[in-house]
Deep mutational scan, measured.
Amino acid sequence: CHSECLGNCSQPDDPTKCVACRNFYLDGRCVETCPPPYYHFQDWRCVNFSFCQDLHHKCKNSRRQGCHQYVIHNNKCIPECPSGYTMNSSNLLCTPCLGPCPKVCHLLEGEKTIDSVTSAQELRGCTVINGSLIINIRGGNNLAAELEANLGLIEEISGYLKIRRSYALVSLSFFRKLRLIRGETLEIGNYSFYALDNQNLRQLWDWSKHNLTITQGKLFFHYNPKLCLSEIHKMEEVSGTKGRQERNDIALKTNGDQASCENELLKFSYIRTSFDKILLRWEPYWPPDFRDLLGFMLFYKEAPYQNVTEFDGQDACGSNSWTVVDIDPPLRSNDPKSQNHPGWLMRGLKPWTQYAIFVKTLVTFSDERRTYGAKSDIIYVQTDATNPSVPLDPISVSNSSSQIILKWKPPSDPNGNITHYLVFWERQAEDSELFELDYCLKGLKLPSRTWSPPFESEDSQKHNQSEYEDSAGECCSCPKTDSQILKELEESSFRKTFEDYLHNVVFVPRKT
């Protein structure tokens, strides 16, 4: 048989008469490798580009789960590009990614509803959504962080984005990388972005840091009482949809009607710091009717980097990364020049730590249904340095008659930039024990000054392991946590139920 035959053949030295091919099969003959313009397919066939392209389009058009959109890589027609490569849609070739590779997620039936953290986790790592997304989240724990972890990498949506009755959302900033909504599939009414009845939605994105392009379709905003109209108009300008909307697409009466839409800028007039305090004062603000001013709200939190936005980490279910302080308005003076500047002394802060701070007014709604208010920009203030805590785990070892090696770990709280350490030492008198000992005694162990690591005695271990207080009263049991108490109650309830079950099964009433 021919060298490319495997198993047997019907005619000697003829690659077209093989029972099976050793390498690849091409047009009725066995070959060692697939010549151009053919590609290896499933490690035994040679196919042309049209064959591989037909497989790709067949799966793409069917949208069946589990099928493969075949691509070409290293002269092979394979189910998908290997790690580190992405497909070129024009020629199906796998090309190296520039940075992290995109991950295209194809949605069944063309859309997916995100109504819980669990459903959001199914899209973790996706960068391109081939379909439409509907966000409908009523509640949950730590929602802002969970949504950002699972949806934060999405850069492109081919269909539309719909935010509907998501009472738990305060902001859409968890879509931190969303840059493009194509609108290839539109919501009824030709809408590519749809926001309806979101009672706590206050911000779409921080438009000073976020760009969003909507290729096709219109915007729809109705019944978002805490979303200011200025935020919607800003989205029109940034996304390129200005002029597409009709009169009733953006409701003037049901958007922002319960919001404090600040239209003035508060400026800080005085800032002073110490290692654990920050004193702030800002310019006074009074609405047209000074009785509408209820006070100020001061927001602050630790910020290692200057990239904080107002609604980071917030949701309507209680999660809030900001510390909020309510401040009463100052006494009002008739003389504008003698107006008191409101302020606040922030206490209990960490030394040498940068804080993000902003302040906003708290006002009631005027009778004319106009909203007044003022808010400052987010500023960054760093507390002063102070003395560091003591170095940890000092170790001293003498390696000769004239040297001592000293080692330690950095302090747990540096409280500033540590530039150097101060080492103090003092000579001590020799131990009298060394002169009084009889060095001729056998088995004498000389006193040693070398360091030995501390260890816990058996008594201390027994005390720590004991669940009861000892007789001397030195140790006591740790208080039980809520989960331990709940577990004990469940076990007790189970024992009672099981005992009742045994009584009912074992003891049967005697027939009379």
Rank of each mutant, 00 (worst) to 15 (best):
Glu231Met: 05
Glu122Leu: 11
Leu331Tyr: 10
Lys350Asp: 15
His222Lys: 01
Ser269Asp: 06
Ser171Gln: 06
His233Cys: 06
Ala385Ser: 08
Thr118Ser: 05
Met346Thr: 03
Thr361Met: 08
Gln245Trp: 09
Ser166Pro: 03
Gly139Ala: 06
Leu108Trp: 13
Val238Leu: 10
Gln339Phe: 13
Tyr160Glu: 02
Cys228Phe: 07
Pro411His: 04
Leu331Ala: 09
Ile278Thr: 03
Leu293Tyr: 03
Lys407His: 14
Pro284Glu: 15
Lys301Trp: 04
Lys103Gly: 13
Leu252Asn: 09
Ser319Gly: 03
Ser119Glu: 08
Arg179His: 14
Glu187Phe: 10
Leu219Ile: 06
Leu331Gln: 07
Ser166Tyr: 03
Ala374Tyr: 14
Asn248Lys: 07
Ile114Ser: 00
Leu151His: 00
Asp315Thr: 04
Leu172Thr: 09
Leu143Ile: 15
Trp286Arg: 09
Arg179Ala: 09
Lys242Tyr: 04
Lys177Glu: 11
Leu204Phe: 10
Leu107Met: 08
Asn248Cys: 15
Ser158Lys: 06
Gly159Cys: 03
Tyr300Arg: 03
Tyr194Trp: 11
Ser398Phe: 02
Val324Thr: 05
Asn190Pro: 04
Ile134Trp: 07
Leu345Ile: 15
Glu310Ser: 15
Arg247Gly: 15
Asn399Met: 04
Gln354Gly: 09
Ala385Trp: 10
Leu201Gln: 01
Phe311Ala: 11
Met297Leu: 14
Ala195Asp: 01
Pro329Ala: 11
Leu362Tyr: 14
Leu201Tyr: 00
Met346Cys: 07
Asn224Thr: 05
Leu133Glu: 00
Thr118Ala: 02
Leu204His: 01
Ser116Ile: 07
Asn198Glu: 01
Ser269His: 15
Asn320Cys: 06
Lys242Ser: 05
Ser132Thr: 10
Gln382Lys: 10
Leu147Thr: 02
Tyr160Gly: 10
Pro330Gly: 04
Pro225Leu: 10
Glu264Pro: 14
Ala149Trp: 14
His210Tyr: 14
His233Asp: 13
Leu265Ala: 05
Tyr372Leu: 08
Pro410Thr: 06
Asp384Leu: 15
Gly189Arg: 08
Leu298Asn: 00
Lys253Ser: 06
Ser132Val: 02
Glu264Cys: 06
Gln121Val: 08
Thr353Trp: 02
Gly295Trp: 15
Asn340Asp: 14
Leu252Gln: 12
Glu231Asp: 15
Asp206Gln: 09
Ile271Leu: 08
His106Tyr: 07
Lys409Asn: 15
Leu266Glu: 00
Asn136Lys: 09
Pro351Met: 05
Leu180Phe: 12
Cys317Thr: 02
Gly373Glu: 04
Leu161Tyr: 01
Ser401Phe: 12
Tyr285Trp: 14
Leu345Val: 12
Glu237His: 12
Ala259Gly: 04
Ser401Arg: 06
Ile250Asp: 14
Thr241Ile: 08
Lys177Asp: 12
Leu219Asn: 15
Thr113Trp: 03
Phe221Ala: 13
Asn248Tyr: 05
Arg244Leu: 11
Glu283Val: 13
Phe268Ser: 01
Tyr355Met: 01
Ile214Cys: 03
Gln339Glu: 06
Thr241Asp: 11
Thr371Gly: 13
Arg347Leu: 10
Ile163Arg: 00
Lys242Trp: 14
Thr323Tyr: 14
Ala149Val: 09
Gln245Ser: 12
Lys103Val: 06
Leu186Trp: 05
Cys261Asp: 04
Ser319Met: 13
Pro330Val: 06
Pro329Met: 15
Leu227Val: 03
Gly348Tyr: 02
Asp292Cys: 11
Leu151Phe: 09
Leu406Asn: 14
Val104Leu: 05
Asn211Ile: 11
Glu283Pro: 08
Trp352Leu: 12
Pro330Met: 13
Asp367Asn: 05
Ser269Pro: 01
Phe193Met: 12
Arg291Gly: 05
Leu349Met: 07
Phe175Met: 11
Arg179Asn: 11
Leu252His: 08
Arg291Met: 07
Leu229Met: 03
Pro342Phe: 06
Asp335Ile: 14
Ser274Gln: 05
Pro391His: 02
Gly373Cys: 10
Leu153Cys: 13
Leu169Val: 08
Asn190Tyr: 07
Leu298Gln: 00
Asn263Ile: 12
Trp282His: 02
Tyr223Ser: 07
Pro225Arg: 04
Arg347His: 15
Cys228Thr: 05
Asn142Asp: 09
Phe296Asn: 15
Asn136Ser: 06
Tyr194Lys: 07
Phe175Ser: 00
Ile154Glu: 00
Arg176Ser: 08
Ser401Leu: 07
Pro351Trp: 13
Gly256Pro: 06
Thr361Leu: 08
Asp393Ser: 07
Ala374Pro: 15
Gln258Cys: 14
Tyr194Arg: 08
Gln403Cys: 06
Leu252Gly: 07
Pro288Ala: 06
Glu283Trp: 06
Lys350Leu: 10
Lys360Ala: 14
Tyr285Leu: 14
Trp352Phe: 12
Ser274Thr: 11
His210Leu: 03
Asn150Phe: 13
Lys253Cys: 12
Gln258Arg: 06
Gln216Ala: 08
Ser239Trp: 05
Asp335Lys: 08
Arg332Ser: 10
Asn198Thr: 01
Pro394Gly: 04
Ser158Cys: 13
Phe299Cys: 02
Thr309Arg: 13
Thr361Lys: 04
Asn200Lys: 02
Leu349Tyr: 00
Glu122Ile: 02
Gly139Arg: 07
Pro304Ile: 11
Trp408His: 00
Asp312Tyr: 07
Gly343Arg: 06
Ile114Met: 06
Arg247Glu: 03
Lys301Thr: 04
Met235Val: 12
Leu279Thr: 01
Ala251Trp: 12
Val390Leu: 10
Gly217Thr: 00
Ser192Phe: 01
Ile214Asp: 00
Leu196Phe: 06
Ser376Pro: 00
Thr353Pro: 00
Leu153Trp: 14
Leu229Gly: 02
Pro342Tyr: 12
Ser132Lys: 01
Phe268Trp: 12
Gln403Arg: 13
Glu146Met: 08
Ala356Tyr: 00
Leu362Val: 04
Asp315Trp: 01
Phe174Trp: 08
Ala316His: 00
Lys103Trp: 13
Phe175Lys: 00
Asp393Ile: 06
Arg176Val: 10
Arg291His: 03
Gly373Tyr: 14
Ser260Asp: 14
Ala251Val: 13
Glu146Arg: 15
Val397Gly: 12
Glu368Trp: 12
His233Thr: 13
Asn150Ser: 09
Ser173Met: 12
Glu302His: 15
Leu196Ser: 13
Ala385Leu: 03
Asn224Val: 02
Lys242Val: 15
Lys177Ala: 06
Arg176Pro: 06
Val397Met: 12
Lys360Thr: 03
Gly295Ile: 11
Asn307His: 15
Thr353Asn: 01
